[in-house]
Design a protein around this nucleic acid. Structure first.
Lengths: 233, 233
DNA sequence: GTTGAAATTAGTACGAA
DNA sequence: TTCGTACTAATTTCAAC
């Protein structure tokens, strides 16, 4: 369920083109904010909290839903309680031109909570939630390994989930600290946007000092990482 | 908001102890299933879909909420439409014994959607959602770099989010394929559980054949990865 | 885009199985 | 525990402003 491959005919999905058919004004964002914290509020209460009339709230609520800005409503649950307390990230290297098969196989695995195509050393990251560590091992070696599209995997375990917000909104950054970067509205993307591969090699462990801003930072592009995997792994 | 550090006094958060104060039977799981797909269903409709009386549905619904199995209800939104179409993963190496500070700084960053402490090469993974690539760059170099607890970062971009399920339930695996691993109920964890660090060095790029199940798989433990980072990076 | 009233539905409290 | 029913309170819908 919830197959998000709609925004990706073949490759680049995350290229911003916002506000198709619905102008995202401040009121709409405020509605989303309320709905993020409490997805079960009545539209009446929603109207009150946002500061608009009920009829207006109904109209906007339905518009957001119909336009697809709101995909669905869901419950956030405590996975410890349901017995799926082990979380793991599986980084997958996919054989080229077998993406379609990889995607198809993925849809058959209900224990996968999240899967994203990434730049960098690996091609995809999968997040799974399991009852214990042995199950993760079984999943990786028995199920993922049997997919021909999967060339290699690398698994790390999540020891603690520090932060888990339902989602981020453009209006959030205006609150955090005094860093309002963008007006958060209107049309096209701004400033520099060299689509995805963003590489800049760092100095190899120089200084190790306290607060050196740059130099310790790495933006791993697709080509660089894949070469490194071939040589060093 | 939504600080999940409650289940982690210091380190190991994801160690399963389920069903405290509430017996998770099949009915409860079915309720969660319905609520995952539609968090706004009325309790009446919920009762009908689960196959119990309304009174019972109210009781169980409230019990799940009060017991913390259901944390909150939220809306799933289309980030393209809100103007935050760029997603990035930032892998962070944290200076030892500066975790508390790292966590505190993280709470101050509203653009962070998810943060998990991981085993492997890095110490933590942060997921951010931004308007464009430049913003990610600014966030990493200007904000993360200024946190003394942050020793190094590695950023990859998400090209496409293939799958994004609200959450996984134990009952899901019984549907996917014929692999019902566990009865999904009752008390303690089972079988082998060597808490977290799970290491097993692979053959260094042998064969590269089509369907070799093992050997291509890597379980990266904490110690191994950190040593590799110190030497090779 | 807003307010007000009717119709419907949701939430609560009880007793019975 | 769970179910069924009746009562109360709220929400949604629809109208006119």
């Amino acid at each position: 369920m919830t197959d998000m491959s709609s925004n990706s005919g073949s490759g680049g999905g995350t290229t911003g083109r916002i506000g198709i058919g619905l102008e995202m004004d401040a009121t709409h964002l405020k509605i989303l904010e309320v709905l993020r914290d409490n997805g079960r509020v009545s539209v009446s209460a929603l109207a009150e909290r946002v500061g608009i009339s009920r009829a207006n709230a109904y109209t906007r609520f339905e518009a957001l839903r119909a336009d697809g800005v709101i995909r669905r409503f869901t419950a956030e649950i405590d996975h410890q309680r349901t017995g799926l307390g082990i979380v793991a990230l599986i980084f997958v290297t996919v054989r080229q031109q077998m993406w379609r098969q990889f995607r198809a196989q993925l849809a058959q695995m209900p224990e996968v909570e999240y899967c994203a195509i990434t730049t960098g050393q690996h091609d995809a990251m999968i997040q799974v939630r399991m009852a214990d560590v042995a199950e993760v091992h079984a999943m990786v070696t028995e199920r993922l390994a049997n997919i021909p599209a999967v060339k290699a995997t690398e698994t790390v375990f999540i020891l603690d989930e520090v932060l888990r917000r339902p989602y981020v909104l453009p209006s959030d950054r205006d609150r955090g600290r005094g860093t309002p970067r963008r007006p958060a509205s209107s049309s096209g993307a701004s400033s520099s946007s060299s689509s995805s591969a963003y590489s800049s090699a760092p100095e190899p462990e120089q200084g190790q000092g306290q607060g050196l801003p740059l130099g310790k930072m790495r933006f791993v592009g697709a080509a660089e990482g894949r070469a490194a995997l071939r040589d060093a792994t």
